[in-house]
Structures are given as C-alpha cells and as structure tokens.
C-alpha cells in the first residue's frame, strides 16, 4: 500500500479517511483526495478554520459572500448533515457524491425532494412551490403576472399531486420525475465525472497510489 495521503497535507477538524469516503461514494480515492484540496481552499477562504461556513459556500457559488439565495441556502443546509452550521469534509464528499453522474438515480430524486421540502414536513406543499417560483423570479429578469404564477403552480400541482390531497409526497415526486426527467438535471454535475483530471492542479498536490495513476494513464 502506498502512502496515498501525504502527512504534509493539513487535516481539517472534520477530516475523514479518503478510502472510507471512496467506499461510500462514486468517487475513487484519488478523486476524494482532489476534493480535499478543493475543500481546503473553500474552507479557508474567509474563516481559516478548515470548515466551510455558509458565507464561504456563497462566496464560491456567487463570488459574493452576502448574496442571499433560497436554493443555495437549502443546498448548504442539506450538505450540513450534522446541522452545526458548517460543512465538514465528509459531509462535503458524501453530498457531492449524490451529484456524481454515476450516483444512483434514487439518491438524486430523494435529494431534490428534500431540497424542495422547504419546511421539512415530508411533503412539498403548494405554498412552498409558489415561494420557490417567487424566489426564482426575484433573482431573475423573468416577469410573470400573479395570475400566470398561480396558473403554473396549479397546473404543476394538478399533475404531480395525484392523490389530490394538496401536497406532493415522495412517491408522487418519484412518479412525477419519471415523467419529467429534466426536473433532476440539476442533480448531476458533469465536473465530478473525473474531478482529478478536470482539475489537475488539485491532484498535482496530492500523492496517489501508483496503481491508480496507471489507471489514469
């Protein structure tokens, strides 16, 4: 076995063994190591404590630490599995794993459901859906009349809420996504397919087992 994680690499407070993370996610060990380099950058961009705070997440996404965005907030909260206000390394890798092109479709569908279940009731409710549409309109130049918004939300609910109980449950969501696969296109990040090749500057600073290097060759 090679020393595939160098002792010269700093360990953050929430550091986890890349081999364990690779075994639980679609990533290889070398890709987890590349993600660690990325994680170190992100987690020390404002507060140098090796943990990703919401401001650092927003800075990375928008180049602005103060930009408010409903969906970025929800994604941060879902990544922050321990709910301690920061994204630790293991949380970062496991959560990004869901966005990997090879991640199970079920995981992507479930993650998207939790994203849209703003109040975490186990259902996507009509008011939540309207709130999300309004949030999108607020950040974009798209202008829709209130009548149009109501009509779109009504139509979507009519199609998705097949039990007609005024809320979308997980089974209804799965069925709706199977009819409209584009709904989870945001759940796949092509970048992750081979992050160590897409971001060679990250992998260049890590040590990888020779066998893995030969696989990449």
């Amino acid at each position: 076995m090679g020393c595939y994680f160098s002792k010269k690499v700093r360990k953050t407070p929430g550091y986890e063994d890349p081999t364990v993370l690779a075994s639980e996610t679609p990533f290889t060990v070398s890709e987890v190591e590349a993600l660690y380099e990325l994680y170190l950058k992100l987690s020390n961009s404002i507060i140098e404590d090796g943990l990703i705070h919401k401001e650092e997440f927003q800075l990375a996404l928008f180049r602005n630490e103060n930009k408010k965005n409903l969906f970025a907030d929800r994604i941060f909260d879902l990544f922050d599995v321990k709910r301690n206000g920061v994204i630790e390394f293991g949380e970062f890798v496991r959560s990004l794993g869901v966005f990997h092109p090879n991640a199970p479709l079920e995981d992507k569908i479930a993650f998207a459901f939790r994203l849209y279940d703003l109040r975490q009731t186990g259902y996507i409710e009509r008011e939540e859906l309207k709130e999300m549409v309004l949030a999108l309109l607020h950040e974009s130049d798209l202008v829709l009349s209130d009548d149009m918004i109501e009509s779109i939300v009504d139509k979507t609910f009519k199609d998705a809420d097949t039990k007609d109980d005024g809320r979308i449950d997980q089974d209804e969501w799965k069925a709706f996504v199977s009819q409209h696969p584009s709904l989870i296109k945001n759940m796949t990040l092509p970048y992750l397919k081979d992050i160590s090749l897409a971001f060679p500057s990250f992998i260049a600073r890590t040590e990888v087992e020779e066998s893995e290097l030969s696989e990449l060759a």
């Binding site: 996404l61 969906f71 907030d73 999108l136 798209l142 779109i152 939300v153 979507t156 709904l183 990040l189």
Partner: peptide, 24 residues
C-alpha cells in the same frame, strides 16, 4: 401553458454548483 413550476425553479443560480470548482 405547459410551463412546469419545477422547471422554472431550476433556472435559479443557487442550483449551479459549478462555482465550487472554479479556481479562485
């Protein structure tokens, strides 16, 4: 209209995680 509310929502910049991977 055939607009789907979830498709509209997906246009949000908050969904675009590519910023995480850009060299700073």
């Amino acid at each position: 209209n055939n607009l789907n509310a979830f498709d509209i929502i997906s246009f949000s910049s908050g969904f675009d995680l590519s910023g995480l991977f850009e060299e700073k």
